[in-house]
Nucleic acid binder design. Structure first.
Length: 922
RNA sequence: GGGCGACUAGCUCAGUGGUUAGAGCGCUCCCCUCACACGGGAGAGGUCCAAGGUUCAAGUCCUUGGUCGCCCACCA
């Protein structure tokens, strides 16, 4: 009756939903993870890679957050002053694109709204989307300090951006100029090299005849983009190319345009490729741009900003660029100037955001000089001030820094940090803001310190630059802008440099490297070690679909973690992700693993349930939970258990010490999968399968001398196991921890101690004894299974060993042995066991025997023996061969040789036993 | 064109030169034993992609090749 009540109270299966929701809310409401910037404990700080407000949390975020959260919780539980600072990224171009698509549904363009109204729309989106992300993160258990939440476009961070810009501008590291940039005709903005993604595509290459002026001859040029020929201002050949040397200095008539353009020589031209003649279009190709500069060629831009041909394209003006291409090819064909066309695989650059084909275009943009910033970054990484894990990513990072090019930081967008520079209408002088202060207008920040007049001509007609900064500019400041920089705040002094950055390797160049450069240049103390943004950098894997493809929302292969959470539980999902997160390899998502993780959560739940359900019976005898499991009582475990022996208790605490050490080591080195596996094996394999089963009778023993210490031990072990599990499974462990007695005012397991690898728990004797007993039990079960004995039927067995200590060990642990091997009796002797009429299992140290019942399966036993003998003989032979090898015995370390010798001796004993038995049986 | 990674049990993956290469899932047999069938017990299953090499010893280090994936790159 009572048990029914309990069963209702603790459900048989773990039901995570209600529990998780309750704790997520509680942790947030109580501001449980608010960090203190003063007090005890070494600081451990980590900045959340701010999710873009473009969407919601996806499974990749969850992998990242799980890994961060595990480390954060682990550090916090070890008494470090831990901060995980959360926030969101305004994600300039990405967000603008999303909102523009929304507008498109209303048949509107951003230009229809105007800049201010458009910005208002985006802010509205931000409020909704940012809120969703935050709620999701809270629900998924991220132990962030939400009291310090940041947003890259909020006033304080805008100020940091302006401050950084002004400093770099004054130092000449930011400059403005007319250069060739990547232009997205759809987004109508410049984008950086990194934002162009290259796709191999089957295209065509056209060979076009350019007639030589005043001659019947012509040169044949090859091009993949015929529409740009309208802007050709030269054709080029290699200076040493004998085929064409005689033409250099002459001119060709540009077909369709009938413009006379020079034939020049430039060593850039590859004689082997195509015809060895290149058309030069300085306004539409980066290489041609450089060649044009070298040869003082005019730049003729034949396209508009939205990818149509302009007036300079003559009769093609107004035609869309690819339509123009088709028409030009057709026209050339008609004129007999098209010599041929071939299939051609080449890489096409598309806009990372909207996938439009990028157009190289000359325009006036803002750039950042990267070499002076890259060098200190490279040095810091090379000297190990920043440790990069996995190691091979370090090489990739350094290689990128070595080959860095200037960064185009301006965007012709409306959503972002507006560049704090004003242009003088009278003299074109650029005048920066006088300082980095910001003011709030209609809730949004803008640069406040507008220069009063032109610093050059004194003119008053100043207008602010309309461009905004690349979104990654503000991201690059994130580790210090979020802590209050440029002010010298307590947070900054305490938590900067941050301890660690965990990010995906896909944003290594976009973000991680730029943070290193900006941090070293702008933030922190005098020495580089005090200026770096983070001391360690861990690049985690990416989650892929079961087929190994990148997850994609547009392809519908993205996975919503919240849905999986509803299905399997957040802890299960976290455990699954962490257990697969081996450094350096991507994760393919499969349902199998989640099911396994859910089963594990259920196992933990039920192990705890076992304790609480049975406790009811104990309480009937007048014992209270407090007497058995109060914190001060748990602290003194393990307690000796009289009479029945305390071997299993000594053993489980010894295991605990070793597991805690292993988990510490694994987490220190980002080996999340190892930490998970270690904990899993401990909890399921050791705690549940052996320990609980072993001590069950002790717990039920009416003798309080036995029951009380046994209960105290098992509660202490469970408590430690929960704390060990907490970083990866925070909800389940929090729930169960609160079912144990806790000190007054105890708020959360998250603020309790992580189990220490206590050396006084280490008990080699218990480890060895337990291993032997387990081996004996497994062997006996094995014989039973092989003999197909009725599982319910207890049988007698014989144990024989010449070792006295072993025989004593068996005697002392007779009870659990009989129970766990389902024996009625285990007879101990030091004599030879009769193989006739029974099945025997042997090791070098002992023999076990179960007598046959009625049915005797001698042939099967003989076959088994022969197989076993064969295997052993081969094994011994190969080992002896190695031992007889002089070079092995002399060169291999002593312990390896000794171990091998010992093994051979053991195997020989085993082999002899098997041979004897075979002889006796046949 | 450079660079990186993967290839280990039917599947998904661990494996940090040293006894007989592991896990989870799946599979076979048995068991609904009073925490848990999301469970318990016992098993089967692997020439570690190939070929060379280094080493006393190679799944592990080196070279070459193969297959697959990813990143970078201005060859028209």
């Amino acid at each position: 009756m009572h048990e029914e009540a309990i069963t209702r109270e603790i459900p048989k299966a773990y039901e995570p939903q209600e529990i998780e929701e309750r704790w997520a809310k509680s942790w947030f409401d109580e501001k449980l993870f608010r960090a203190e910037n003063s007090g005890n404990g070494a600081p451990f700080s980590i900045a959340l890679p701010p999710p873009n407000i473009t969407g919601s949390i996806h499974i990749g975020h969850m992998l990242e957050h799980t890994q961060i959260d595990m480390l954060v919780r682990w550090h916090r539980m070890r008494g470090h002053r831990t901060i995980w600072l959360p926030g969101m990224d305004h994600a300039g171009i990405a967000t603008q694109y999303v909102v523009e698509r929304q507008l498109a549904k209303e048949k509107l363009r951003r230009q229809d709204l105007g800049r201010e109204e458009f910005e208002r729309r985006v802010w509205k989106w931000k409020e909704e989307s940012g809120g969703v992300i935050k709620d999701q993160m809270i629900r998924l258990g991220a132990s962030c300090d939400w009291t310090r939440e940041r947003f890259t476009l909020e006033p304080a961070l805008y100020r940091a951006v302006i401050e950084a810009f002004l400093r770099l501008y004054r130092e000449g590291l930011i400059y403005r100029g007319r250069y060739m940039v990547n232009w997205c005709p759809r987004c109508q903005t410049a984008i950086s090299d990194l934002e162009v993604v290259h796709h191999e595509r089957a295209g065509e290459i056209w060979n076009i005849r350019y007639p030589i002026a005043g001659s019947k001859e012509f040169l044949v040029v090859a091009t993949t983009r015929p529409e740009t020929m309208l802007g050709d201002t030269a054709v080029a050949v290699h200076p040493d190319d004998e085929r064409y040397q005689r033409f250099v200095g002459k001119t060709v008539m540009l077909p369709l345009m009938n413009r006379e353009i020079p034939i020049i020589a430039d060593s850039y031209v590859d004689r082997e490729f195509g015809t060895g003649v290149v058309k030069i279009t300085p306004a539409h190709d980066p290489n041609d741009f450089e060649i044009g500069k070298r040869h003082n060629l005019p730049q003729i831009d034949v396209m508009t900003s939205d990818g149509h041909m302009n007036e300079a394209a003559g009769k093609y003006a107004g035609v869309e660029r690819f339509a123009a291409r088709a028409r030009i090819v057709a026209d050339l064909k008609e004129l007999g100037l098209l010599e041929g066309v071939k299939e051609h695989m080449h890489a096409v650059g598309v806009c990372d955001r909207c996938k439009s084909i990028v157009e190289p275009r000359i325009s006036t943009q803002w750039f950042m000089k990267m070499k002076p910033l890259a060098e200190p970054a490279e040095k810091a990484v090379r000297e190990g001030l920043i440790e990069v894990v996995p190691e091979n990513q370090r090489t990739i990072l350094l290689h990128w820094l070595e080959n860095i090019r200037d960064w185009c930081i301006s965007r012709q967008l409306w959503w972002g940090h507006r560049i704090p520079v004003w242009h003088c209408a009278d003299c074109n002088e650029m005048v920066p803001a006088t300082d980095s202060r910001v003011e709030i207008v209609e809730g949004h920040a803008r640069a406040a310190s507008v220069p009063p007049k032109c610093t050059k001509c004194g003119g008053k007609k100043l207008t602010q630059d309309t461009d905004v900064l690349d979104t990654w500019f503000s991201s690059a400041l994130w580790p210090f802008s979020t802590l209050g920089w440029p002010d010298d705040t307590e947070d900054l002094r305490t938590f900067y440099p941050t301890s660690l950055l965990i990010s995906g390797y896909d944003i290594l160049f976009f973000w991680d490297v730029r943070m290193i450069m900006m941090g070293l240049h702008l933030a922190g103390g005098k020495e580089p070690r005090d200026r770096i943004p983070f001391r360690r950098l861990y690049l985690h894997s990416l989650v892929r679909t079961a087929e190994g493809a990148k997850m994609s929302k547009t392809k519908g292969t993205g996975v919503d973690p919240l849905q999986l959470t509803q299905q399997y539980g957040t802890d299960a999902l976290r455990y699954m992700l962490a257990s697969m997160a081996a450094p350096g390899t991507d994760i393919a998502l499969t349902e199998d693993r989640i099911l396994g993780a859910r089963a594990f959560a259920n196992k933990i739940w039920n192990a705890a349930r076992f304790l609480f359900v049975n406790l009811e019976k104990v309480e009937a005898n007048g014992l209270t939970l407090d007497e058995l499991a109060a914190p001060e009582i748990r602290a003194k475990a393990p307690y000796p258990v009289p009479g029945e022996g305390a071997l299993a208790h000594r053993w489980i605490f010894s295991r605990l010490a070793s597991v805690a050490a292993q988990v510490n080591d694994a987490l220190e080195n980002f080996r999340f999968h190892e930490a998970c596996q270690t904990i899993y094996q401990f909890f399921w394999g050791a705690f549940c399968d052996w320990y609980i089963e072993w001590v069950k009778p002790q717990l039920a023993n009416p003798n309080r001398e036995i029951a009380v210490p046994a209960w105290r031990n098992i509660f202490a072990a469970l408590d430690a196991a929960l704390r060990l599990l907490h970083p990866v499974m925070p909800f389940l462990t929090e729930e169960l921890w609160h079912k144990l007695p806790q000190p007054d005012g105890a708020r959360s397991i998250a603020l309790d101690k992580f189990p220490e690898p206590r050396t006084q728990w280490t008990d080699v004797g218990a480890d060895d004894s337990m291993a032997t007993l387990q081996e004996i039990i497994v062997s006996l079960r094995n014989i039973r299974a092989e003999m197909k004995l009725d599982p319910k039927k207890k049988v007698a067995a014989d144990f024989s060993s010449r070792g006295l200590t072993l025989r004593i060990l068996i005697q002392e642990n007779m009870d659990p042995l009989l129970r766990l091997a389902s024996l009625s009796e285990l007879r101990i002797s030091k004599d030879h066991l009769d193989p006739k009429g029974g099945t025997i299992r042997s090791t070098a140290a002992f023999d076990l025997r179960i007598a046959y019942g009625d049915a005797v399966d001698k042939p099967a036993e003989i076959a088994r023996l022969k197989k076993e003998i064969d295997r052993l003989e081969k094994d011994i032979e190969s080992k002896q061969k190695r031992l007889s090898d002089e070079s092995f015995t002399s060169k291999a370390p002593g312990h390896v040789v000794d171990a091998l010798r010992a093994t051979v001796v053991e195997r020989q004993i085993e082999l002899q036993k098997l041979r004897d038995r075979l002889a006796e049986l046949s």
